[in-house]
Amino acid sequence: LRLEVKLGQGCFGEVWMGTWNGTTRVAIKTLKPGTMSPEAFLQEAQVMKKLRHEKLVQLYAVVSEEPIYIVTEYMSKGSLLDFLKGETGKYLRLPQLVDMAAQIASGMAYVERMNYVHRDLRAANILVGENLVCKVADFGLARLIEDNEYTARQGAKFPIKWTAPEAALYGRFTIKSDVWSFGILLTELTTKGRVPYPGMVNREVLDQVERGYRMPCPPECPESLHDLMCQCWRKEPEERPTFEYLQAFL
């Protein structure tokens, strides 16, 4: 395994491009020591290896001592969030954005069929390849993070704006909380990567959403798509659509 080009840095580690087995181009995620327990990670990795779908980033291998390494397929255009905010983002029109959403829903419909939960679905965790191919990455890892700023769910590192209220408040993460996050991801797509709930801080978002506030229809977004977002944001988790439905609708 060779680490060649550093692609990015996040709160919990770095991402590199490299070569595996001398020939395969891969992405390598390294986790800061202390982010998660190697034992817990190894268990999760076994499950992650079983998830194989064309719209999920394929896991190739893991190094399960500290520092933990995760070796996955390489996606040339990086994260969907950076892609939307970058040069190419300007030229993306609604049909392409909807197609990308459908690809993500397709990957998540598979996660749904496998009775698995992602827990951290957002544009930053979707990767883009050639020809606007989108794949879901980092599934299941969020559960293992041991950082206090994260586990408190009120901490600075927790993605509260993407998280369903029952998950943020009571830790009830299910495929239905993933559906909520998918609704937020749809706003990221239609606004080219704007942060959700602009002008609001995490605490406010939690309070307002509890009181029934939902983001309005983004500019140039059809009402039918906003309606779909609002279905994803129904207060009762069981009233939210399935990913199978979302995939078919898109």
Rank of each mutant, 00 (worst) to 15 (best):
V136T: 05
E188F: 03
L92R: 09
R52L: 07
L81I: 12
P218R: 05
R119S: 02
K157V: 14
R153N: 08
K50N: 11
L51H: 00
R234N: 12
L81S: 15
K29H: 02
Y150R: 02
K85Q: 11
M17Q: 12
I70L: 08
M229P: 06
N202E: 01
L31D: 10
P216D: 09
E44N: 02
E87M: 14
K192A: 08
I104S: 07
R25D: 10
G86K: 10
E65W: 10
R234G: 10
R172K: 08
Y110W: 11
V111E: 03
R203D: 05
R2G: 09
L185K: 01
R240T: 01
N21A: 12
K55R: 12
W162N: 03
S106R: 14
N125V: 01
W20M: 13
R214Q: 12
L225V: 06
D178G: 01
V98H: 14
R153L: 05
L144H: 11
C230G: 10
A61D: 03
G18T: 09
G10I: 00
V136F: 00
L84A: 10
E146S: 07
F182C: 07
E210M: 06
P159L: 00
A164W: 01
E39P: 07
E210T: 09
V98D: 04
L92G: 05
A152P: 05
V136R: 01
A168R: 02
Q46K: 06
V117H: 02
R52K: 09
L169M: 10
S177L: 05
N115C: 12
L250M: 14
A109C: 13
C134L: 07
S79Y: 01
M200F: 08
P159N: 03
Q46Y: 10
L189E: 06
T23S: 09
T19F: 11
Q46V: 05
R214Y: 09
E239P: 14
E223A: 12
K235W: 07
P95Y: 08
E239Y: 14
K32N: 03
F139R: 03
Q231V: 13
P219G: 05
C134R: 00
R172F: 05
K55I: 06
L84Q: 06
G183N: 00
L1F: 04
I68N: 07
E87P: 13
R113V: 13
Y60R: 15
A167V: 04
G22A: 13
L127D: 00
T72R: 06
Y60G: 11
G140A: 00
P222I: 08
Y91V: 08
E188L: 02
N125F: 00
G18F: 07
R25Y: 13
W162I: 02
E130I: 13
F173M: 02
F158I: 06
A105M: 07
I160N: 00
T174M: 15
M200A: 07
G13Y: 05
R153K: 10
S79R: 03
V111P: 01
Y110H: 10
E87C: 11
P38Q: 14
R211G: 08
R2V: 09
L250P: 05
R203M: 13
G78P: 02
A124K: 03
Q231D: 13
L31N: 14
A164K: 01
K161R: 06
Y69P: 02
I28S: 13
V195I: 12
T88F: 12
F182N: 00
Q231C: 12
